[in-house]
Amino acid sequence: MEAETSQAAAPDMLKDIIIDIRELTFSRGERIIFDGVDIAIPRGKVTAIMGPSGSGKTTLLKLIGGQLAPDRGQVLLEGSNISRMGRNELFKARERMGMLFQSGALFTDMSVFDNVAFPLRVHSDLPDAMIRDIVLMKLQAVGLRGAIHLMPAELSGGMARRVALARAIALDPDIVMYDEPFAGQDPIAMGVLVNLIKRLNQALGHSSIIVSHDIQETLSIADYIYILADGRVAAHGTPAMLRDVDSAQVRQFVQGLPDGPVPFHYPAPDFMQDLLGGEIK
């Protein structure tokens, strides 16, 4: 398959790998979400995970964060298996990861300031003044320094996600996982976020994993891209490689066409049969 050739063409990037996912199999009940997936996340780069809705992108991030355990296969963080870690080891590993949840997941009983300061207070002994400065810097970076005293309930969805982003990068983690960072952002904020992610990646040298549907933004920012479909890696490669990959599945996805081999629908019986059958099973 073309995926093999693309890997051969980008060997230098994939030499220094921070997270290595091997033969990953994971199912929810009857539904197999991953069926033997291999993904390598290069260190210090922006890696994008793309795929249709419901293809398991959020699930993949949770597997990397150790919140779910694979049925088979391994998720290796610098060679150590995350699902084998004990509780303390796992929490140590998570200190090095920042995660932006799809829903933002701000702590609703804390102000914006306390939310962003939370990881700092937990993991460092910095004096209050220093914490305040760091929080201000992070909020400035996402354009929400003015919202510092608001409560999460007073933020719009897009603002909440940007605050969550500030919280995810508060500790300057080695690995930052962004679940849909662009969803719900206006074009200006989107541009700022794209730049911010790029800049953070370059300035701090951390490895970023971006899950996104926004093809243009993602292609512009990612160093390496994995496309998931049907529980497998449909294709991977640099943006340039994926643009001229000769696979209908990938073309459909990269060009955003509604019809093609990538299913828009959750697996279901034939539509006509369903309509005429008159029975929900």
Binding site: F101, L106, F107, H123
Partner: peptide, 17 residues
Amino acid sequence: LMKATEQLASLEMIGVD
């Protein structure tokens, strides 16, 4: 509600049990 809004999950990811 904390669970439904992923607050518990994000505590875990911050490294707090």
